[in-house]
């Protein structure tokens, strides 16, 4: 059964100068599932996320990816192992074209990225794959445009295309729906579902209908601790979860 778990965190804790943002969280993400991390503001979701990808270093606890202990590795090394994250604020390379944004990701496995003496025309052979990825997220008409000129929802799509270019085994999406217009939400949700067909997705998300719709498993965090875990139908009836979100009703 161990093989079924792609990402496992045990006793994950992060303190900022005495303030405990994440406290003793245990998390197991099943392979090929969509796992959501939810919780009210300040619950430690994003901190948890940054710990998993090592953009923050945990105070204590271990993280295992595919059975390998990745605690203490650099963010870039973790990405190269196939665990790739997105950011809350759409992360694109603003003054590169849409195509070049994706191409930068495709370039990484080529191991040519320190070659400063060769012409970048050698990257042209990546163009077809870049364009195919761009088309898959519905950005084909914008391929030659600088990313900065895309509307917000399209930047999200571009970010996902760039992430997919790495062919990651697992994606960590930090609030993929944040700031999106209604019509964009449906499109991105479909995209995530499509992507998750042969991958694992862990996401932090506030939009409950998206979470209910997409997730196989939900982990609820509150004040840095794990409150509940399970499928949406189960978690949504959990009394402590309702309390955390709605309050006790007595003020």
């Amino acid at each position: 059964m161990q093989n079924d778990i792609i990402l496992e965190a045990t006793g994950l804790t992060k303190e900022f100068l005495g303030f405990v943002a994440v406290k003793d969280v245990n998390l197991r993400v099943r392979r090929h599932s969509i796992h959501a991390l939810i919780g009210p503001n300040g619950a430690g979701k994003t901190t948890c996320f940054n710990l998993l990808t090592h953009f923050l270093v945990p105070t204590s606890g271990r993280i295992r990816f595919n059975g390998v202990d990745i605690t203490g590795r650099s963010p870039a090394a973790i990405a190269r192992m196939g665990l790739v994250r997105s950011f809350q604020i759409s992360a694109v390379f603003p003054h590169l074209t849409v195509r070049d944004n994706v191409r930068v990701a495709l370039q990484r496995p080529l191991r040519n990225s320190f070659q400063f003496w060769r012409s970048d025309s050698m990257l042209d052979r990546l163009n077809d794959r870049a364009l195919a990825l761009i088309e898959a997220v519905g950005l084909a008409p914008y391929a030659g445009l600088p990313a900065v000129e895309l509307p917000y929802g399209r930047k999200r799509a571009l970010e996902i295309a760039t992430t997919l270019a790495l062919e990651p085994e697992m994606l960590l999406l930090d609030e993929p729906m944040a700031g999106l217009a209604h019509e964009d939400i449906d499109r991105i949700a479909q995209l995530i579902r499509k992507v998750a067909a042969d991958r694992t997705v862990l996401m932090v998300e506030h939009n409950m209908s998206v979470v209910a719709d997409l997730s196989d498993t939900i982990t609820v965090l509150a004040r840095g601790e794990k409150l509940a875990e399970g499928p949406y139908a189960e978690v949504s009836k959990h009394p402590q979860v309702i309390e955390a979100y709605v309050g006790t009703g007595h003020g």
Binding site: F55, P75, A77, F93, P94
Partner: peptide, 12 residues
């Protein structure tokens, strides 16, 4: 353009 993003793509 975006150092954090480049790192998250696996570039040191």
């Amino acid at each position: 353009e975006n150092e954090q993003r480049a790192v998250s793509l696996g570039y040191n």
